[in-house]
Design a protein around this nucleic acid. Structure first.
Length: 269
DNA sequence: CGTTTTTGACCCGCGC
DNA sequence: GCGCGGGTCAAAAACG
C-alpha cells in the first residue's frame, strides 16, 4: 500500500472553517470551546494536554473563528514537554520468553504529550507528512466507527496516532497524536520533505504558534491514507500536486486542513 | 520481495 | 473481585 498518491483525500470542506484551539488542558477547553461537540470535548479533554478542535465546515456554527481562541495559549502543557524518556512503546515489551508480556503498560507509561484535533474530512487518516503504519483497530464503545491506531514508521520514532470518527458527526475525524517525532520528517523517495504540519504534530510541546504553518502544504508523498473501509476517496481535488506550498488557501487535502487549522490569531503570531 | 493492513487475542487500568 | 473498555502485539494476507 504504500502510496498511491496521496491524492487529495477529502475535501469537502470549503467554506469557512472555524477553529478552536485550546491549550493547556481541560480548563481551557471548557472555557473556550464548547460550541461544537460537547461530547467530543470531553473526549478531547481526556486526551489531553493540548486539544485543538477544528471544525470545518459547513455547519458553520461558528461565528467566525475569530475569536474564541484564547489566543496565545502557549500553555500547552508544559509538562509533557520534553522528550519523554523513551517509550518503548509497547513494542519492546513483547518478549517471547516472558509469559506475561511485561509491557510498559504495566508501568503506567508516562503520558506523552498528546495533541488532538478534529477535522472534517472524508478520510480517516490525515496526512501530516509522516509515514504511519497501522497497528491496530478497535471498536469504540460510544461510536459506531472504529478507532485506528497508527505508529510512525520510523523505527526510532515512537510517535503514535489515533484516528477515530466522531459519533456525532461522521464527517468529523478526531486525530490524536501522541509523542514527538525524533526525526525531521520523512524524506520520501519522491523527494518531498515534510510538512510542517507534521512537525507540528511532533512538536506538541512548543507554543502553538509554531505549530501551525498554514503556508505549508505537503507534497503528499504519502499514501492516501485511506484506511479501512474506505476504498478510495473521491477525487475531490482541488489542488494540485504541486510541491510548492501554497499559501494556505485552499487546502485540498486533509493536510491542507491541518495547515488551515491555524486559527486566525495564531497565524499572525 | 518488502512493507503495510487486517484481525483476533492478550493484557492492563478503571469503575462498580 | 469482576467486568468492561481500551490499547498493543503478532501472524497471516494483501498490495505495490
Amino acid at each position: 500500500m504504500e502510496d498511491k498518491e496521496g491524492g487529495k483525500p477529502g475535501t469537502a470542506f470549503t467554506s469557512e472553517s472555524s477553529w478552536t484551539f485550546s491549550g493547556g488542558g481541560p480548563d481551557s477547553v471548557s472555557s473556550s470551546v464548547n460550541y461544537f461537540f460537547d461530547k467530543d470535548s470531553s473526549i478531547l479533554s481526556e486526551f489531553a494536554d493540548i486539544v485543538v478542535r477544528c471544525s470545518v465546515s459547513g455547519t458553520a456554527s461558528n461565528p467566525g473563528g475569530s475569536a474564541d481562541v484564547s489566543t496565545s495559549n502557549p500553555s500547552v502543557s508544559s509538562s509533557s514537554s520534553e522528550d519523554l524518556p523513551e517509550k518503548s512503546t509497547g513494542s519492546g515489551g513483547k518478549l517471547p520468553e516472558i509469559p506475561s508480556k511485561v509491557r510498559k503498560k504495566g508501568q503506567k507509561q508516562i503520558r506523552q504529550p498528546r495533541f488532538a484535533f478534529m477535522t472534517k474530512s472524508e478520510v480517516d487518516h490525515l496526512e501530516d507528512g509522516y509515514r504511519w503504519r497501522k497497528y491496530g483497530q478497535k471498536a469504540v464503545k460510544n461510536s459506531p466507527f472504529p478507532r485506528s491506531y497508527y505508529r510512525c514508521t520510523n523505527s526510532k520514532c515512537t510517535v503514535k496516532k489515533r484516528v477515530e470518527r466522531s459519533s456525532e458527526d461522521p464527517a468529523i475525524v478526531i486525530t490524536t497524536y501522541e509523542g514527538q517525532h525524533c526525526h525531521h520528517g520523512i524524506a520520501f523517495p519522491r523527494g518531498g520533505l515534510i510538512c510542517h504540519e507534521a512537525a507540528f504534530a511532533g512538536q506538541l510541546t512548543p507554543p502553538v504558534s509554531q505549530i501551525y504553518h498554514p503556508g505549508v502544504q505537503s507534497h503528499r508523498q504519502m499514501p492516501p491514507s485511506i484506511t479501512q473501509s474506505q476504498p478510495h476517496q473521491a477525487p475531490v481535488d482541488v489542488g494540485e500536486p504541486h510541491p510548492e506550498p501554497e499559501p494556505t488557501s485552499q487546502l485540498p487535502t486533509d493536510e491542507g486542513l491541518l495547515g488551515d487549522i491555524v486559527p486566525p490569531g495564531m497565524r499572525g503570531r
